[in-house]
Amino acid sequence: MIDMKYDIHILRKEDKLFPTRLNILEDCPDILYVLGNAGILNDFAIAIVGSRSCDEYGKSVTEDFSRELAQSGVCVISGLAEGIDTYAHKGALAGNGKTIAVLGSGFAHIFPASNKQLLEEIIESGGAIVSEYLPDQVPMSMCFPRRNRIVAAMTEGTLVTQAREKSGALITAKLARHYGKKLFAVPGDLNNRKRAGSNSLFKMGAKMVVEEKDILNEFPDYHFSAVKKSKKKTSNRLPPEKYANTYLLLQNGPIHMSELCRISKQGAGQVMSDLTMLEMQGFVKQLAGGFYTMI
């Protein structure tokens, strides 16, 4: 039947490990199925949600917030969906923090399938996978909005990093509001209305956040214990002399490699080679479409 690598913990409502925050739900599930570390379900947690389709900006914002929150000891909860959810989990893993994924299907039917590896990484890192559905439940469209209510209820607050105007993430945000949780949002680009669904949340009273402290400061009673000293990159680190010329060409924002070759006085070959070296040493980053940006 179902080939499972990990043990499934079955938590009943009465169990000690069952997330008590879920009790505020009128239709609180009686049973939760959990993979991995069931002991973290009652930890202080923040949900990070957003659209499945996101751009480079949404990706980097999500990963940064998630990593930094995780480093501050916050458990990051999301839905293991494509796009923002995936980056939220990845960010938390990168910050060596805990993360919980709440599924809208049974454990035997991970959706999307491409995230199976991520699921294993979450479990191996001491995180947890939660579902209210029996393991053989296939994913159905009605399941996902119901999943969102658990995401919203299991956390102290919800952060929307990037969303379309009609995104499922906004459902989660509204539910969080409904349950009296705190709501945070990252401002979106006003010119790109499709990607600026998070801006509508400000009208509902969401708190605008620009760094992870904006979220943490909302919970003065809680004492955050940093998991590890954050290894924040020092912005004044400079690349070796050899590559400095190429590096400095990137100071005005992302630029395509062809354009770099053109404005550089060195040959195309030299520039391409410099870019690889800079990227490997962590000074620049390649974006989709052959663009490069400073980190």
Partner: peptide, 26 residues
């Protein structure tokens, strides 16, 4: 192309640039 007998670091680094489909982000 550079007329070099050995493959040097810069040659290797440039060659890596031409494998964009192998990058994970894709």
């Amino acid at each position: 192309l550079a007329g070099s007998e050995e493959i040097k670091v810069e040659h290797l680094a440039e060659a890596i640039q031409y494998r964009s489909l192998d990058r994970k982000y894709w």
